[in-house]
Each structure stands twice: as C-alpha cells, then as structure tokens.
C-alpha cells in the first residue's frame, strides 16, 4: 500500500501551500527500520488531516553527522543548500522524526539564514492532541514500556515530557530506567558513532543501555529517534532476542489507534 504524501514541488505546481513541512531525514528515507517510523508518522498526519508536504528528492542530509564528526565545511555546505531550498519554498514550520535533524534545523541553521519553527514529532503529536486534532485513548493499558530519552531531544533540547505524556495517554505503564531524563545514558550512536566502529573498550554502549532497559522488566523499549532505535534493537538482539522489542512513540500511537 502506497502512502499518501505530497511533495513541496507538487503542491507549488498546484499553487497550494502546506501548513507544515515534514523533514524525513536521511535515516527516515533510506534505513529500512526508520522508513517504518516515517510511514507511521505520515499515517498519523493523514489521520489528523494535516495539510503537510515533504521535500522528497529535494531534501538532503541536514549535516548533523558531518558537524559532530568535525567536518564543519561539509555541514555548512549542506546547511546552506538546504536553507536555499527551504527558503525558496518559504517554509515556516517543520516537523521531523529525527532528534538530530530537529536540533540542527532548529538551532544550527538559524545563524546561517534558516529560521524556522521546528517541532519534533513527539512534541507535534502532543500539540495536535492538545488542540483536539487527534484523539488518544488508553488502549495499550496492559503493557509496560520503558522510555529511552534520545540525547539530542532530552539533554540537548530539554524535551522530556511530551514523549512521556503521549505514552501515558495511550495507557501504557511507564517503567523508568534509573538513568533517565537529564541523566539518560546514550545509546552509543551520537557524535557520528553510528557510522564507525567504536574505540577499544570493554563493552559496547548500546549493550550497557539495553541491559538497563531489560532490568525494568518492561516488554518494550519506546524511543523517539531512529538511531537510538537501531542501537537498542541491536542490543536486544544480542541480549534478549525475542523477549523485548523497540518501537518509536509514533508507532505505538499507530498501534493504539489501529491506523
């Protein structure tokens, strides 16, 4: 089943303007696991009848990975090219499922001429709920879930509550890990680690974190970042295959609403 989505170019050719741009991100576009998250979020947007569009082939890497890896040149090249495209379409509001792109678009494009009102999808869905554009019912009341704070959403930008509120609204029992919120423990993917072998040590970071998640005895790990999702899924595969799964909050919402 194809999913219904407009590109900015298509809308412009019809002389239409979307209310918000959905920034899919490189992982959301190409990584098989992340693509499912992208589709789930689009289902929610369509369900709430949001007038949105994506850039499609005109989107390019935000430059987050290049910047954290120290390649400021490449980051600014990407940023300036993306800003030209975004400003060309007069984009004002952006929502993204990736905390890294969220941080980059919101905080790091500003001084380069890209000033947008940027939302992370958990923040945005919670806003839709508060504006009564989407209903959330506690359908998942028989499962216990632990929530992993992505660094760039939580510590990086202070968003701790929206994801948790959403989980509560769909009825799940929240089993917090000892290291959560401001003291959340990284999944191991940030700072361009996702794309390289870790340095020599005695444990992989994702194994350390997954061990902690397993200790909560929750049946699922919820997160809101596709990198975290990959790292923790890998951890579960190594430590407790089949006993736990890792899901994005928007996937849990799709599950709760049976979309």
């Amino acid at each position: 089943m194809n999913i219904e989505v407009n590109t900015m170019a298509e809308m412009k050719s019809r002389n239409e303007t979307p209310d918000i741009l959905f920034w899919v991100g490189s992982a959301g576009s190409f990584d098989d696991r992340a693509k499912k998250i992208t589709r789930s979020f689009v289902k929610i947007l369509n369900h709430a009848k949001i007038n949105f569009a994506v850039l499609g082939v005109e989107e390019s890497a935000s430059g987050d990975v290049a910047k954290r890896a120290g390649n400021e040149f490449l980051f600014q090249m990407q940023a300036l090219m993306n800003i030209e495209v975004l400003n060309g379409y007069e984009v004002k509001k952006i929502v993204t499922t990736c905390p890294h792109d969220y941080n980059t678009l919101k905080n790091e494009y500003k001084s380069l001429g890209g000033i947008y009102d940027v939302y992370h999808h958990t923040e945005y869905i919670y806003k839709l709920y508060n504006e009564k554009k989407i209903e959330l019912t506690p359908n998942l009341n028989n499962i216990s879930i632990t929530y992993h704070d992505p660094c760039y959403l939580g510590r990086g930008n202070g968003i701790f509550d929206a994801p948790r509120e959403l989980l509560k609204l769909i009825g799940v029992k929240l089993a917090e890990m000892k290291r959560s919120r401001k003291t959340s423990f990284c999944c191991g993917a940030g700072g361009a680690q996702m794309f390289k072998e870790p340095e020599k040590g005695n444990q992989d970071i994702n194994i350390n974190r997954t061990t902690e998640a397993i200790k909560t005895k929750a049946s699922k790990i919820a997160t809101s970042c596709s990198f975290c999702n990959t790292m923790l899924s890998d951890g579960v595969k190594n430590l407790a295959e089949g006993t736990m799964d890792v899901m994005d909050i928007c996937e849990l919402i799709v599950l709760s609403k049976n979309l």
């Binding site: 194809n2 999913i3 989505v5 590109t7 899919v24 490189s26 959301g28 576009s29 190409f30 990584d31 693509k35 992208t38 589709r39 689009v42 994506v54 499609g56 082939v57 989107e59 390019s60 890497a61 430059g63 990975v65 290049a66 890896a69 390649n71 490449l74 090249m77 990407q78 361009a192 996702m194 794309f195």
Partner: peptide, 25 residues
C-alpha cells in the same frame, strides 16, 4: 566514506538521492 556519501548522495549512506521518496512505496 560518510563524508563522501553526503557530498555525492546527500545522505551518509550510499543511496541515490533520487530514491529519497521510495519509503512511500
């Protein structure tokens, strides 16, 4: 390699930029 991919394909992975919307299919 990641830098090269971003420069050439606009993504950290070696996927063609023209496939960016394929997730919808």
């Amino acid at each position: 390699n990641v830098f090269t991919n971003i420069e050439n394909n606009g993504a950290p992975w070696q996927f063609s930029a023209s496939d960016r919307l394929n997730w919808k299919y």
